[in-house]
C-alpha cells in the first residue's frame, strides 16, 4: 500500500473537517469537526514516522492526543458555562458582547 494513499486520505479528512468548521453553527459540532482535523494530522504524523523509520512521529501523535483531551475538557466546560447564560449553543446566538 503506497504511503501516498494515507497522505491523500489525511488531506481529504482535513478538508472535510475544515468545511465542517466553516459551515456548521452548533458549537459542539464545530468542536467535533476540529477533532476530525486533529485526527487527520495524527494520521499524517504516523505516516511520516513510518516513512522515515523514526519513532518521533508517533510520540508527536501521543502529545497531540494529550492536548486534544485537555482542550476537550476545557472547551466543553466553557460551552456549559455559556449555555447557562444564553440557553443556546449556536454560535450566532452569542455574537453580541453583552450576555
Amino acid at each position: 500500500m503506497p504511503l501516498s494513499n494515507y497522505i491523500l486520505l489525511s488531506a481529504v479528512m482535513f478538508s472535510i473537517g475544515a468545511v465542517g468548521v466553516m459551515l456548521r453553527r452548533n458549537t459542539i459540532v464545530v468542536f467535533m469537526c476540529i477533532e476530525i482535523m486533529l485526527n487527520a494530522v495524527n494520521l499524517s504524523f504516523v505516516t511520516f514516522s513510518k516513512l522515515h523509520n523514526d519513532i518521533s512521529g508517533q510520540v508527536g501523535v501521543f502529545f497531540v492526543m494529550v492536548v486534544a483531551a485537555a482542550e476537550a475538557a476545557v472547551g466543553l466546560a466553557i460551552m456549559i458555562s455559556v449555555f447557562r447564560s444564553i440557553l443556546s449553543v449556536e454560535t450566532t446566538d452569542s455574537s453580541e458582547l453583552k450576555l
Binding site: P2, L3, S4, I7, L51, N53
Partner: peptide, 8 residues
C-alpha cells in the same frame, strides 16, 4: 511518496 516505507 511512491515507496512503502520502512519497517518501524
Amino acid at each position: 511518496f511512491p515507496m512503502t516505507g520502512g519497517s518501524l
